[in-house]
Design a protein around this nucleic acid. Structure first.
Lengths: 249, 249
DNA sequence: TCTTATTTTGCGTCTTTTTGCTAGTTTTTA
DNA sequence: TAAAAACTAGCAAAAAGACGCAAAATAAGA
């Protein structure tokens, strides 16, 4: 049997069943396991499949980068996410909210970081899946079309059953007086549940949102333990927040 | 024997069997291996076939595998999804499994169709969000990196609390004798729960998977109410399934 | 037909590729 | 934590390929 032919067979099997065992293929094609191992390694090198311990899996599943390079103030959000990374240590259990700032945090997680991440955001979950050492747990529930996050009673109930070290959340509006507020009532309910399930809550917000408010209240400002903006912590724009017991980064 | 004539023979052999061994051809035509090697090299130069170590393979064989889109057998899967659409009526409550065939079903849902869709697959959920009249409910749980679906005890528990009209599921392997089987134990557990929560279960599978099996069993074949392949329902490949109480589409 | 130029073919030698095996290490699993 | 499975690396045998060369076949012109 030709090498090329064998590799085609391997590829087809992987595409067909999504995953294969090297031993199965070796037996089926009646060649040594080493040969299959070399074939798979080569196909992996050509990005035709992904080699894993003991077998191979199809790329169809793993390669999907929902690159949206149309994010407002991406630079600032990236800065914020970078600062947030400093809070993370191996073994931490965290919750990551939806929104582009939190998505940026997910994107910038170092590949070697060992985490357990809860999220109710589909894009965040997708992004986290690319991090080999991150365990991703999706909080289910009805999914909002606009925010692409699970909301509603079910999501809130699921959140009530978990406890995390840190919650990283975004907000629609934030004000040193009025706290965190939102345009949407359902979102507020979920965010309340998120804050409740966290030992410490970290707010990620670009400075543009400071001193703004809206209809529905998520929480008082001192429900937040750490607030991260793209500004230097000493920036005078942050002065109104210094009266409260908040760590500024 | 003329050189032209010999090269024609080589070409037709390649077309016929998709591949040839240089040694076989040399012996059959009673010329030295060097001659065949030169012929094949020349034909490769003319893009009539592809030369590989030890032989040659037809171009069709390779272009077939050079997937321009990375979904294997997308055409067939699309056909299957089209057929599945016929089962759906406004107001239905369904579950959609992970996998590329089910993803294709989600993709092809008409925008005007009014549905409630449960899913444990992140890509399917994302796709369903683009359908204005579909209510999407994500079944949460730990998310598998390979399949990008929620699995594990939590997902199974969540599934135990819902009841849907139809479950559309895929499978790794299906056989009329051995039923539906999978490579992965965790996936089997989830699929069992999916079948349990559905009044009727619809299996979507390309015909290439028929008569294949693997280690872990999801269910007997008669746990499936409807099986949809890309084949015509009267196709003889489906005969083994006619003995069971399955509707074929 | 004969001679000559050109192409094609087969052979020998040497290099490269492929493959299976062994030994030692790492990863997974129970 | 120990056994089992999988991985890595290196080696050697066998198969395949490259290349030069000379013989054979073919073509062409006198």
């Amino acid at each position: 049997m030709l090498k090329e032919e064998r590799q085609q067979t391997i590829l087809s099997e992987v595409e067909l069943h999504n995953r294969i065992l090297l031993t199965d293929i070796a037996e089926a094609l009646d060649v040594s396991i080493d040969t299959i191992r070399r074939d798979v390694k080569e196909l992996d090198g050509d990005h035709k499949l992904r080699k894993v311990h003991g077998g191979a899996i199809s790329l169809g599943f793993t390669t999907n980068s929902t690159r949206n390079n149309n994010i407002y103030r991406l630079e600032d959000k990236s800065t914020i996410a970078q600062k947030a990374l400093a809070l993370l240590k191996d073994g931490a259990v965290i919750f990551v909210d939806g929104g582009t700032t939190c998505l940026e945090l997910a994107r910038l997680l170092p590949t070697e970081l060992d985490l357990t991440c809860f999220t109710h955001s589909l894009p965040v979950a997708m992004e986290l899946l690319t991090k080999p050492n991150v365990t991703v747990i999706m909080v289910g529930g009805q999914v909002s079309k606009e925010s692409q996050t699970a909301i509603g009673a079910n999501a809130i109930h699921n959140l009530s059953e978990i406890k995390v070290d840190y919650s990283f959340i975004g907000t629609g509006y934030v004000d040193s007086q009025y706290g965190l507020t939102e345009f949407d009532w359902d979102i507020v309910q979920v965010k309340k549940a998120v804050i409740k399930c966290a030992k410490k809550t970290v707010l990620l917000s670009i400075s543009e949102k400071l001193n703004s408010q809206h209809r529905y209240k998520t929480c008082e400002i001192n429900a937040i333990n750490t607030m991260i903006t793209e500004l230097h912590p000493e920036n005078k724009l942050l002065n109104p927040f210094r009266e409260h017991d908040i760590r500024l980064l």
